Computed example of a mutant assay.
Amino acid sequence: MNKKELRKQQIEKLRDFADNEEKDREDELLLDQIMNTELLKNSQTIGVTSSLPVEVDTSKLIACLWDEGKDVYLAKAHNDANHSQDFLHYTYKSKLEKSKFGIEEVSDLDAQINDDLDLIIVPGLAFALDTHERLGFGGGYYDRFLAKHPDSKTVALVNSKMAFPTANWKVEKTDIPIQTIITPKQILRG
């Protein structure tokens, strides 16, 4: 199956799962898992994306990070030919606006940019549990960013509908595997 078909299939599967009590339960388990990792405890600057309904909910995670005194940075995609992105400092006072992808991003013109983060929580549609390969939404924003910032640690929160035993999609040279994958049942390190 090609990536375009798999993305479409995954989005449908995740849409069906989005209004399910099981998704809420898994989101809570994923939140508990990540909040109890040494990876998170040893990180001060954390990059995250404001989640879409089909993704693992990051709103409670962000609130917990603030409660822990962590510095939170939200991803902001740029409308350029390079499909670049930055991470902007995000507090409860930050102004947000929806991007062309429907994702809330910091809109404050004076928001601090920090692209050298301790930890980045990487979103996606599908994750291979054996190789930690990721299938994103198709823009290449995260792969390009991670290639330029290899020192940041990466983690993905992966619910049961996003987890694949192995990548059944074509993996490109430019695809960057995720270092740590957290599922509701386990933590897998690459």
Rank of each mutant, 00 (worst) to 15 (best):
K3V: 04
K3R: 11
K4E: 07
E5M: 12
E12F: 06
L14S: 09
L14I: 03
R15W: 07
D16F: 13
D16P: 01
F17N: 05
F17I: 09
F17Q: 01
A18I: 03
D19M: 13
D19A: 04
N20V: 00
E22F: 10
D24V: 03
D24H: 07
E26C: 15
D27K: 00
D27L: 10
E28I: 15
L29P: 02
L29C: 10
L30H: 07
L31C: 01
L31E: 06
D32L: 06
Q33N: 13
Q33R: 15
M35K: 08
N36D: 15
T37V: 05
L39K: 02
L40S: 00
N42Y: 13
Q44M: 12
Q44R: 15
T45I: 01
I46C: 04
V48S: 10
T49I: 11
S50T: 14
S50W: 14
L52T: 14
E55M: 12
E55C: 11
E55F: 04
V56N: 00
K60L: 14
L61T: 10
I62P: 11
C64W: 10
C64Q: 14
W66D: 00
W66Q: 01
E68G: 05
D71C: 02
D71W: 12
V72Y: 04
V72W: 08
L74C: 01
A75G: 01
A75K: 05
A75C: 04
K76W: 00
H78I: 03
D80A: 06
A81S: 15
S84E: 09
S84I: 07
F87G: 03
Y90E: 02
T91A: 04
S94M: 03
K95H: 15
E97R: 15
E97S: 12
K98Q: 13
K100Y: 11
G102S: 11
G102D: 08
I103T: 05
I103M: 15
E104W: 11
E104K: 15
V106N: 02
D110E: 14
D110F: 03
A111D: 04
A111V: 00
I113F: 13
D115A: 07
D115R: 12
D115F: 13
L117H: 07
I120C: 06
I121D: 03
G124S: 02
L125P: 10
A128G: 05
T131C: 09
T131Q: 06
R134A: 12
L135G: 05
L135C: 09
G136Y: 11
F137P: 11
G140S: 10
Y141I: 00
Y141E: 01
Y142Q: 09
D143I: 13
D143N: 06
D143M: 04
F145P: 01
K148V: 05
H149N: 10
H149S: 11
P150R: 08
D151N: 14
V155W: 10
A156V: 13
L157W: 05
L157R: 04
V158T: 06
V158G: 02
V158M: 06
N159G: 02
S160A: 07
S160L: 05
K161L: 09
M162H: 06
P165W: 00
P165H: 02
T166V: 08
T166A: 14
A167P: 05
A167F: 10
V171R: 08
E172L: 15
K173F: 04
K173P: 07
T174S: 14
I176G: 13
T180N: 03
I182L: 12
I182R: 00
T183P: 09
P184D: 03
P184L: 02
P184F: 13
K185R: 08
L188R: 07
R189G: 06
R189K: 15
G190P: 14
G190S: 14
